[in-house]
Amino acid sequence: MQIIVDNREQTPLDFTPYPCTVQAGTLDVGDYSLKNLEHLVAVERKSIPDLVACVTRERVRFERELARARGLELFAVVIEGSLEDVRGHNYRSQTKPHAVLQSLTAWTIRYGVTWIWAGSPAGAAYFTYWTLEKYGTEAQKRLRAIVTAFDGSQVIPTTKTPENAV
Results as ranks from 00 to 15, higher is better:
residue 166 V to G: 04
residue 28 D to M: 01
residue 29 V to Q: 01
residue 90 N to C: 09
residue 116 I to E: 08
residue 122 A to W: 06
residue 52 V to L: 04
residue 159 T to G: 00
residue 84 E to R: 11
residue 11 T to S: 10
residue 54 C to W: 01
residue 110 R to M: 04
residue 147 V to K: 10
residue 61 R to H: 08
residue 41 V to I: 15
residue 66 L to D: 01
residue 159 T to H: 05
residue 50 D to T: 06
residue 84 E to S: 15
residue 146 I to N: 01
residue 133 E to D: 13
residue 100 V to S: 11
residue 31 D to V: 06
residue 3 I to F: 03
residue 107 W to L: 02
residue 101 L to N: 07
residue 113 V to C: 11
residue 102 Q to L: 13
residue 83 L to W: 10
residue 142 R to G: 04
residue 48 I to Y: 13
residue 18 Y to W: 04
residue 116 I to F: 11
residue 99 A to G: 01
residue 162 P to N: 05
residue 10 Q to T: 13
residue 108 T to S: 14
residue 44 E to T: 09
residue 46 K to H: 13
residue 40 L to F: 08
residue 42 A to D: 00
residue 5 V to Q: 07
residue 52 V to H: 05
residue 47 S to G: 15
residue 158 T to I: 12
residue 153 S to I: 12
residue 153 S to L: 12
residue 34 L to R: 07
residue 144 R to I: 12
residue 143 L to W: 08
residue 159 T to N: 03
residue 115 W to D: 15
residue 86 V to K: 08
residue 94 Q to P: 08
residue 82 S to P: 02
residue 65 E to C: 01
residue 58 E to N: 12
residue 142 R to Y: 04
residue 119 G to N: 11
residue 8 R to T: 00
residue 152 G to M: 14
residue 60 V to C: 00
residue 66 L to F: 02
residue 117 W to F: 13
residue 31 D to P: 14
residue 7 N to D: 15
residue 8 R to M: 00
residue 134 K to W: 07
residue 46 K to V: 13
residue 164 N to A: 11
residue 58 E to G: 01
residue 134 K to V: 09
residue 99 A to D: 13
residue 89 H to I: 03
residue 97 P to T: 14
residue 14 D to S: 12
residue 40 L to H: 07
residue 149 A to Q: 04
residue 101 L to K: 11
residue 152 G to T: 14
residue 13 L to W: 00
residue 158 T to M: 14
residue 10 Q to V: 12
residue 98 H to I: 06
residue 42 A to K: 01
residue 130 W to S: 09
residue 58 E to K: 05
residue 111 Y to K: 01
residue 67 A to H: 06
residue 89 H to R: 06
residue 85 D to W: 07
residue 123 G to E: 10
residue 116 I to H: 09
residue 128 T to E: 08
residue 2 Q to I: 08
residue 35 K to D: 03
residue 118 A to S: 14
residue 81 G to C: 13
residue 86 V to E: 06
residue 21 T to W: 00
residue 110 R to E: 10
residue 15 F to A: 00
